[in-house]
Design a protein around this nucleic acid. Structure first.
Lengths: 318, 318
DNA sequence: GGGTCGCGGACAGATTCGGTCCGCGATGAG
DNA sequence: CTCATCGCGGACCGAATCTGTCCGCGACCC
């Protein structure tokens, strides 16, 4: 009967909504005998979910941490929180998690009721962004693209090239790669009949996935290497060279997340090469460090720092 | 048989792992006839999960967005991403979502296999924090506390008072409230036999939940109001008064997340009252605005800005 | 010691399940 | 246009399963 399976799902969900459930309560909640509850619990156990039980007064069933993760039943609010959290995670505050976050986001968005999707989008707007060396990537677009890759569906979108000219693209998406704080899409461009690497932040709003395609062999075994090579010519608007009066290890910890590399000069100083598209972001990263530093280039950054310094000095006057 | 229910769960999970599944493929994957697959799909539909189907060549089944959210089957990596994302969300980058995020986190942590928990904790460390008016709250502690509230379990922890004296507490936890960038726990202190409001960031590491208790009536109907009144005497280390040369609406948008309130002076200026425990954070927030501003108090902030301004000026020299 | 609560065997009847067989209709490629 | 593909669902039947009932056991806590 469908009833049995539905009940099983319900038990699973009940057990996750409250730590302890007495057999009798569960039975009442589910509208079956206690014996059936015991059987359901057994079934869950045989499915690999560790349900602990405590005897005596105040005892009950409790879902524990097992080897595998049970499917997570979420309330509306919680789902929204998960979606928002994943969008943050996908935009990269924590290294090495972006791809997984995007995959999870794809799964979630696929089944997210419309009313919740609206809430997520509304909340998304107010997210606080730090420094922002990374251009803002639309997390929903990211999810759409990730799903298109997974499902092998042709993707259409508008793309603005580095020079700012826009063009409509129609591609077979293969991989979404996250490197040095940017998202890239490795895809086969159907109109140009060639492999291309797209910067996701340059993809226009609302990419649409369409009919499915038969995947062709990738241009390289090592996709990450291929992409990073393809984009190595990619330049930031500004490249900064800055000497910081602090040990390289300290700086690298505090600058985690900035695109760039750090050279140790001596025990107390290091040279930071950082790339960014915004002077504000670059200035803040270094100011935020809290150490003395010296900018060698670019000139624009030096000028920006001077202006900022003057503004702060004015703020402190009275 | 357990088989049927297990299969149903598996179908649900398969349908979320790939967009399109042909009936034959599903049948092979599950080890049953195609007819049975159709029946399973029917069952899912009757459980409220909208499974769309497309006929013809290249057709297949597809899980759509329904009224309710199906339980989310997560891979290991994805679960870690969700946990990290939720921890970020719980620490409050997006308004009004913190409580839900903590609830979801509680659910997740309850069933998170140990190996994944370690990963989450490891990753948590490197999370980038902005400005940080909010003291760092241990997300795992938050989850433990939330679960203790939900499960009505006595909670023990070390608490350092405002003056810095530590004491061991044993309380009945009732509500976790998030206001103005801080977490508070409303609880009944069993030793002092009185209601108390605890700042979660002052709770020592590893709060432990114990035996369950019978809840007593709350001291007030409106818990949020009660707590906010109870903590109204709570002072920040620094209180700043700053005039900003920008419309109040713009400022309030960019300062979202800072504890404080904004008074409109005229169309082009507003007065911001902000509280914070760190001069760096306060300076950062106002500098980050990008507008001209003037600090009226505190003196420390003015001095800090001067020092910062000089440091930036030095950085720009060469 | 007694009450509470989880455990699980046994049994019987009702229900359901899954495989098989089959014809229908929609879709999309050639 | 035609054909192959693929989802749909009715019918049938034997096997498997589920549920409620009854009951004794053991653990735990007051």
């Amino acid at each position: 009967m469908v009833q049995t399976s539905a009940r099983l799902l319900k038990v699973l969900s009940l057990l996750q909504s409250r730590r302890f459930w007495a057999g009798g309560d569960l039975a009442r909640e589910l509208g079956v005998t206690e014996r059936s509850v015991r059987r359901d619990v057994d079934r869950l156990r045989s499915l690999g979910y560790p349900v602990h039980a405590a005897g005596g007064v105040g005892g009950g069933y409790q879902l524990g941490a097992g080897k595998e993760l049970p499917p997570l039943p979420l309330e509306d609010e919680e789902a929204v929180a998960v979606a928002v959290g994943l969008r943050v995670a996908a935009s990269g505050p924590v290294k090495g998690l972006e791809e997984a976050a995007v995959r999870a986001l794809g799964k979630l968005e696929q089944v997210l009721p419309k009313r919740l999707r609206r809430r997520v989008n509304a909340l998304q707007a107010v997210s606080v962004r730090i420094g922002d060396t990374a251009p803002r990537v639309d997390a929903e677009a990211l999810a759409v693209i990730a799903n298109a890759c997974r499902d092998e569906e042709v993707l259409r979108f508008d793309y603005s090239s580095r020079e700012g000219t826009a063009s409509a693209r129609s591609v077979e998406p293969y991989r979404l790669v996250h490197t040095s704080y940017r998202w890239y899409l490795l895809a086969y461009d159907l109109d140009r009949e060639a492999w291309r690497t797209f910067r996701v932040d340059r993809i226009g709003p609302g990419p649409r996935s369409g009919r499915s395609f038969k995947p062709r062999p990738l241009p390289s075994e090592d996709v990450a290497a291929y992409v990073s090579q393809a984009v190595s010519t990619e330049a930031y608007r500004f490249r900064a060279r800055v000497t910081v009066q602090a040990p390289a290890s300290v700086v690298s910890e505090r600058l985690s997340g900035v695109a760039g590399r750090i050279e140790e000069l001596d025990a107390e100083r290091c040279l930071v090469h950082a790339g960014g598209d915004s002077l504000e972001a670059l200035a803040f990263y270094f100011a935020w460090l809290g150490f003395e530093f010296e900018v060698h280039e670019p000139r624009e950054l030096i000028e920006h720092l001077l202006r900022l310094s003057e503004r702060l000095a004015r703020a402190a006057q009275r």
